[in-house]
Design a protein around this nucleic acid. Structure first.
Length: 403
RNA sequence: GGGGGAGUGCCCGAGUGGUUAAAGGGGACUGGCUGUAAACCAGUUGGCUCUGCCUACACAGGUUCGAAUCCUGUCUCCCCCA
């Protein structure tokens, strides 16, 4: 992108003023909001590397493509010479927040948090530039004496906190809001004070929290950050946001074939969003949706698994789903008894229940070397099973071998 | 502190003593169609040594020939008053 902006001025200060605007425009690409108006440009005009903040929740370590949207934007900032501070919210995770419908967020043990934080970092560095990233844990500064905490709390009013739309809705609906939940914006706003954030990024759902960070900064009389919100990527169902708990996500560490397959299964309706958010700069040609989807899947698999991985995944995909053949590499599972009791062995091989296997068999979903096997023969002589590829449903394959 | 209400299968949600493994919906899965898209049709959706057996309606006891449904205790959650 345009990080080298020519400055044609005779301004001895280096012309940063001229380029600040262009930089701000370039960096704002794909974002939904950049607030307040002009603040980002002003900061860029200072001509120094900015500190860009992203707060993450260590309860779910797996990064998926939804995170990739925000991380990709962080990367843009890094490429423009700014540095990123990744804040792991270990403090709040350790306290545990019982809010939100029925889903009680579990209190995490320190070890779990550390493990999650590490996994998260490993995955995040598939996108971020390691050299321009600093990782901090917010327990570092949030574990403060109670009087300081109270001092922090004194800086805001309940009314301010309740400005948040979803709080107001829940109040009106008589739904519970935990005190911690209420204070959450305050704590995460303090993170901005602690690291001296110039810019904070997040999804559009974080707008209130991000803005609140400005208020907290103001009360501490530090510089106030600009905030930038990115669109929320829809999940594989095309309806709800991509999230691990909804099970509609593509993890950045998903194996190539799986990643390719998942991407092919998204509804056409969200394809444009996927392409523009995940593959910025890719020229959109007039391809049919099917081909556009393939191209996207290829490129994304390449990005996370290396050049060429996308094509391999596509080949494997065609083999299994277009030509309906078994994949080239099929996992083996060792069976011992003779005859082979299929419900038991296949359930074990695929990690499901025997009843489930029986059900699928009853519905004609079991194939042996491409031939449908009916519910009549649940026990196969070992010689008939040994070395054969079994397919359960569309996508579960295993080769049974005698041990 | 007082009063009221609620806890059902992956989720939501019927069901207030007897074909109830438990209506209905969502989701998911299987088969068909196909571009692993959408739409649509059909079926499945607790477990198992599967024409049968076992375990299930927060947990533990109890009443009954028989309970998700009645009683007691425990836990959890929500609302109202203070």
């Amino acid at each position: 992108m345009s990080k080298k902006i020519e400055t044609s001025s005779d301004d001895p200060s280096g012309g940063s003023r001229v380029s600040a605007r262009d930089q701000a425009v370039a960096l704002s690409e794909r974002s939904v909001d950049v607030l307040p108006e002009g603040r980002l440009e002003q900061l860029l005009g200072e001509g120094r590397p900015l500190t860009i903040k992203l707060g993450i929740d260590p309860t779910a370590p797996d990064i998926h493509l939804g995170h990739a949207v925000v991380l990709g934007k962080l990367r843009d900032f890094q490429d423009a010479g700014h540095s990123v501070v990744l804040i792991i919210g270990d403090f709040t995770a350790r306290v545990g927040d019982p809010s939100g419908r029925s889903a009680q967020r579990p209190m995490l043990e320190p070890e779990e948090i550390d493990a999650n934080a590490r996994t998260f970092q490993d995955q995040a560095f598939k996108i971020l530039d390691r050299d321009r990233t600093e990782v901090r844990f917010n327990s570092e500064w949030l574990r403060m004496p109670p009087e300081d905490l109270l001092g922090l709390m004194a800086r805001t009013t309940v009314a301010q906190l309740l400005e948040r739309e979803d709080f107001r809705n829940r109040m009106e609906a008589d739904e519970p809001i935990s005190a911690l939940e209420l204070l959450y914006p305050l704590l995460q706003g303090y993170d901005s004070v602690a690291i001296g954030a110039d810019v904070e990024l997040g999804g559009t759902d974080q707008t209130f929290n991000l803005l609140f960070g400005r208020a907290v900064q103001a009360s501490y009389e530090t510089g106030q950050q600009a905030i930038m919100t990115m669109p929320i990527l829809p999940g594989l169902d095309g309806l709800r946001r991509m999230s691990k708990s909804l099970g509609n996500y593509v993890g950045v560490t998903d194996p190539p074939d799986e990643m390719f397959g998942k991407l092919m299964s998204i509804p056409d309706a969200v394809l444009p969003e996927y392409r523009s958010l995940l593959l910025p700069g890719l020229v959109d040609t007039d391809q049919p949706p099917n081909l556009a989807k393939r191209e996207m899947a290829r490129l994304l698999v390449d990005r996370f698994h290396g050049e060429g991985a996308g094509e391999e995944a596509e080949t494997a995909f065609d083999r299994v789903f277009v030509q309906r053949e078994a994949p080239e590499e099929v996992a083996e599972y060792v069976v011992t008894g003779d005859p082979v009791h299929l419900p038991a062995e296949l359930a074990a091989a695929f990690g499901t229940s025997r009843s489930e296997v029986r059900r699928v068999i009853d519905q004609g979903g079991l194939k042996i070397e491409g031939e449908v096997l009916g519910p009549d023969s649940l026990d196969l002589p070992l010689v008939d099973a040994d070395g054969r590829v079994f397919q359960l449903g569309k996508r579960r394959f295993v080769r049974l071998v005698s041990g």
